[in-house]
Amino acid sequence: MIAEKYITSGCLISNHTVYKNGELLFVNKDADVPGFLLSVYKHFDINYSRFYKMDNLSKLGWLASEILLKNSFQKENYRPEDIGLILSNANSSLDTDQKYMASVKDIPSPLLFVYTLPNIVTGEICIRNNFKGEDAFFVFDSFNADFIENYVSSLLDNNILQACICGWVELLGDEYKAALFLVEKLKGNEAVSFTKEHMNKIFDDKKIN
């Protein structure tokens, strides 16, 4: 029942930079958080009008998923219900919660309210890619690679999923970090084995070696 599992792609967005599989792809040190996210969107030449409606947490997670999957994922190899997402962060949707609460004093904004749930970022990624498998959002005070490894492994080993995007999407005020990992049972060119050590190494040092 235990299947071989690999990280076939990894994307890290933090501290004004975008890394994919250890390679620095983009830097923009001169922008605030919304400006940085918009510059990433433009740099990677993505055309998706929903992006402009998203809150900052969703923009961050969604951009990380776009870069993670681009040229690295053969979606056609899978049925939509076999691809899932297991995401986590520390402060849930607090960044947008504050903005929504500010709107309540005037006119409560339904557009902001819908983003006051952390799993909306998961929904945005599913809508974009037609992923219909199991998704879940967990909240830990810091990135818990041990939990993610065990949970995602059990979903893949039991054939609940065949491919899974997992990791961390955190944004609060000026601080942000997304670290997403594509986990598959097929070994690709960039693949390393799916372990908590490899996830932590990418999370902290951007690359394995």
């Binding site: 899932g84 809508i127 992923f131």
Partner: peptide, 10 residues
Amino acid sequence: AVSNDANHIS
């Protein structure tokens, strides 16, 4: 089991 609609956020 859990699934996603991949259709609309609200």
